[in-house]
Design a protein around this nucleic acid. Structure first.
Lengths: 340, 340
DNA sequence: CTGAAAGCGCTTACAG
DNA sequence: CTGAAAGCGCTTACAG
């Protein structure tokens, strides 16, 4: 109780107060060498009394490990983000790691080194979609800095572990559902962003479903959705204005479904009677839309969990699975025409 | 180009290669003392060549500043979270700080010290709502560790800067809109979580509106909404099942509005014809609901920005505004009965 | 089981 | 404008 300085207690304060060396305190804290029961008890008391918490940076400097993971995101504001972050944070916490997050808004920032997060403050990085370009990854890879890619595959020539979701088969299945169960044949597809791999796979699934049922692919039925409510809304309005005939729409993702549903609604076109709608992701609002959205469930929180686990594995063992493809499943609600 | 070691370059490598002392390199990096133009040029070249980035932890250890902000959250998964985090992250980035985030799920974690984030790894903390209890705040305050509270006021006896949103007046105004413009008199209120201050203020606003129009407060018209879709949905179902008569509902927040809308919809009660609905927050999905939701716009991203700014100010100058109350405004869409 | 000491990569008086 | 040296708070061989 002699300590009245306002600054936090250090390992030396603890050592002094307990009458041992700092080495012993360190060993006790880290449980990496035996400490006599007597000393342990004394240490415990002193540490509690002094509110002692080891300084993270001093520890990092000595061990060359920060015990923190970095997350590089493109857009923090979407509905897709919370479950992903939640999964990542949970695993990070469970493993006693810290989580540093950074959002890359402007494209230039993707290659302006040093990034806000990197080897200087983390042990490894979770890279979401195109928050980092191939050149940036190349640079990290060259220095053997652990990277795990989320919803994006490794660029040509590099082998970086990826975790993403099965897009194509599920897209095919849900479009086939529209065709087989609801007799739809003129099915609109709202394309996601061109550079997004998810988007490309979903289009392939859409085309495959068409092919399997001998429905010719019609470019006039493809319009930009961009995984974005507003863009999808405007696309639908234009399609409607141009008098394009269709009896269903596969919106690419749930965000676009929200915009499509609104445009349809405003135009007085009833869903699902006149037009069936199907999305992808099964975001939180999907069951609450009018009508409740038929969609594909993507296990986004699980993607976050697995990605964090893979990164931890890479950091600790140098090993990780080159590709983790998480399964998706169809969720039938009402917007396709079922359950009405 | 003699350097082939795989480990990252240190300040000594730079100094050696440029033929100066590490002190000079440090000064050049930090721009805190003049360096000759000639040396500066040489240093620049060498640093680029070596991909040199100062090790954050060594710097922190020497300066006693981590240059990182911590964020303590309750629930990372809600729709409320992305704009808040987006605002926080933007300001953090603009100021060259790092952002460490941690979600407190279980109540016990709020007082299990050390928290994942604290003086040992950050310069200050942003505390959202009840992610930390009064005792925890007391403890941080006692060691003069900078804290800024978000959507929550300082506990008794402590003076911790808070940033939140104006709840009561806006709630009163929107309920008055229901009364005055749409002639509603039996207005349901879906209560938020009891411990949430936002919730308490919104109820006060609701009551004030009633009073101003001489509508007696009827406890039978208050039900749990809990800022939660599912709970609000069930509450509405029960109200309906019990045959409670009402012509409007102020849902406490937009989440609850989603659930309420769904229950009403399923019961075949038309909104806004039979029942007006108004929410609070103006979350992303509000304009896309059916019908588009009349609500109160809360500047959540701005809350995040201001909170981060206040924390930075507290860290740098020791000063911050005791209370920042951000203005809210009514957003009239269709669910109240307007624009239909 | 324990301690003395070197070292991690920086910054910053102090001296010139 | 520049350098030598001490120090930040830890960890970890090394020795006992």
């Amino acid at each position: 109780m002699t300590k009245t300085k306002s600054s936090a207690a250090t390992i030396r304060d603890v050592a002094r107060q307990a009458g041992v060396s700092v080495a012993t305190v360190s060993r006790y804290i880290n449980h990496n060498a035996p400490v006599s029961a007597e000393v342990a008890a004394r240490l415990e008391t002193v540490m509690v009394e002094l509110h002692y918490t080891p300084q993270a940076n001093a520890r990092s400097l000595a061990t060359h490990r920060t015990h923190t993971l970095g997350l590089l995101m493109v857009d923090i504001a979407g509905d897709f983000f919370p479950p992903l972050l939640s999964g990542i944070e949970a695993v990070t916490y469970e493993n006693g790691y810290d989580l540093l997050i950074s959002s890359i808004r402007e494209p230039e920032r993707r290659r302006t080194f040093p990034l806000p997060v990197g080897p200087h403050n983390t042990d490894g990085l979770l890279v979401f979609a195109d928050s980092l370009d191939a050149e940036g990854m190349q640079r990290f890879a060259a220095s053997h800095f652990p990277l795990v890619l989320i919803h994006r595959s490794s660029p040509e020539g590099l082998i970086i572990p990826c975790v993403t979701v099965e897009n194509k088969a599920a897209s095919c299945t849900i479009v086939e559902h529209l065709i087989e169960t609801h007799n739809r044949r003129r099915i609109l597809f709202l394309q996601g962003p061109g550079e997004q791999e998810d988007s490309q796979w979903r289009e392939l699934g859409y085309r495959e479903a068409l092919e399997k049922h001998n429905i010719p692919f019609d470019p006039a039925l493809v319009a930009p959705g961009n995984f974005d409510r507003v863009i999808a809304y405007h696309s639908m309005q234009q399609l409607l204005a141009r008098g394009v005939i269709f009896d269903a729409v596969f919106t690419g993702d749930d965000e676009a479904a929200v915009g499509a549903l609104m445009a349809l609604n405003e135009a007085g076109i009833t869903v699902p009677d006149a037009v069936s709608v199907a999305g992808f992701d099964d975001q939180r609002m999907a069951p609450f839309l009018t009508p409740p959205l038929t969609t594909v469930r993507a296990p986004t929180e699980e993607v976050g969990r697995v990605a964090a686990q893979q990164l931890l594995s890479l950091i600790r063992t140098g090993q990780a699975n080159p590709l983790t493809l998480l399964p998706t499943e169809i969720v039938i609600r009402c917007s396709c025409g079922c359950n009405s």
